[in-house]
Amino acid sequence: MAELLEIKNLTKNFHGLKAVSDVSFTVEKGSITGMIGSNGAGKTTVFNMISGVLTPTSGSIIYQGKDITGTKACKYTGMGIARTFQIMKPLRNMTVLDNVVSGAIFGRKQLNAVQAREYAAEILEFTGLYDKKDLYPKDMGTPYKKRLEVARALATDPELLLLDEVMAGLNPTETDEAVELFQKINEQGTTILLIEHIMRAVASLCQKVVVMHHGEKITEGTPEQVMNDPYVIEIYLGKEED
């Protein structure tokens, strides 16, 4: 499989604090790649660098063979990279439909407002939000708000979708539904890179998992390999007393 995204020696310092140090990994086209690690491991910082919110201190991000390090955040959907936020950011005073229309207009498809409304309706249908299209985000529960985040990102017609803990706070049934949705998105050809804490979801979705700890990548591999790695077990469950 070809590489869609290649992260090379990515480092980010915040005034002397090393948030991310020397992280490298690749995301294969058409795959679902997961990133796990404890809180403060630097996962979201890596995401923010891939989506242009933060500029790396050093290292490079190569997307479709092009170095895109330091590109302005608003240029990413045009290149086919869309993201969601860990802290949900619904457009509060806009209806669910309008939330998604925003994504559709300014995404890769270059639609006009009328076409965008039609396309947004399709996306809502696909993500199972269509019957809520006239509601405001505050009138929906967390699972639907998380879906809305995904729908808005999806409306930009991404090649690579970055999902930042979109399953956090969901109950097992809702998690299964979300997993199903991401599989459906992936089957349509969208590559996914996701941060997640729920191991069950990660295990059933991802072909490859990257584990981060204290800003460094400690290992990568299939979910089984990673979960049986003694160091990962030590980080997650603590070290056995001798």
Binding site: G52, V53, A73, C74, K75, A82, F85, L91, A153, A155
Partner: peptide, 11 residues
């Protein structure tokens, strides 16, 4: 509503 979201959808 949110400038960061605006950036994220390409505005």
């Amino acid at each position: 509503e949110d400038e960061e979201t605006a950036n994220a959808v390409g505005i």
